[in-house]
Amino acid sequence: MTLYAGSIAEERRAASLPKRTGLKRIFDRNIHAYLFLLPWLIGFFGLTLGPALVSLYLSFTNYDLLQSPDWVGAANYVRIATSDPKFAAAMQVTFTYVLLSVPLKLAFALLVALAFNRGIKGLTLYRAIFYLPSLLGSSVAIAVLWRQLFASDGLINMLLWRAFGYEGPSWISNPDYSIYTLVILSVWQFGSPMIIFLAGLRQIPQDMYEAAEIDGAGKLRQFLRITLPLLTPVIFFNAVIQTIDAFKAFTPAFIISEGTGGPINSTLFYTLYLYQEAFGFFRMGYASALAWILVIIISLFTAFSFLSAKYWVHYDD
């Protein structure tokens, strides 16, 4: 009869009351909790589970919002896998983005966290400055700024001209370079993984370093043998979070390419392609199939990460 774990008062009161029949008792025991959960339950069924199932169904249909969905079996998936050059382009762009931006971002985050870790005057101020881009970076304003930085007459080219007399191209509108401007934008936001690294570094017991010092281990050896292994859970966590996030990136590519993913699909992020199919062409069935493929990619990636964690993430103590 306890509503609260280990609640003596409830049990005493229950003992003095007449025994209730089964159903009524179950109802009384659970009603409060389910009242608290009610908003979430409505949201879960109405806005998450229900829609997820509907989109799974829609992915096997053609649907344009006007006529009712037309069952086509696996045709959408077959077309995506075999004869959709834009899907292939989107995959290539997205994987390039993920594989470049995540490691670089984490490397910067770790490097700066290590510089801070050994205690430094003005830490709070430095940390705030390095964190600021993370906080502002996903806004449209910063994407607008980026468009201007890497334009043919933008700040970067002005600096290159000043420093080296080099006349840079328009980085944004050149398909060879445009994706890298987005990678730089992502790496610039290394502040939040840096903060997580800092918190992780503080968990490493000081006496380990002291013991290593006594044993004559140098700084590099201490880093490779103590810091790095003990930090692997944090590295793992940051890598998973940042990768999932990178797969879902949308706003900067949308703003920089004015919604096209161009030039020549060079900034066609996966989510941007999905958006175009759904809300540009109203191919809701096809876009649903794209969404489910994104789920599969992210799940495979996550599963792979967790499997690989056994071999490189240090978990004991």
């Binding site: 609260y4 909790a33 229900g50 829609p51 989109s55 829609l58 649903s288 994104l294």
Partner: peptide
């Protein structure tokens, strides 16, 4: 609170953390 099905719902809630928004986007 202690209630029947708590672990079940809690696991589902954690599961929704992993689900990309794009899957529910179109039906929503």
């Amino acid at each position: 609170l202690r209630f029947g099905g708590r672990n079940f719902w809690f696991a589902l809630m954690l599961g929704t953390l992993m689900l990309p928004y794009h899957v529910v986007l179109i039906p929503q």
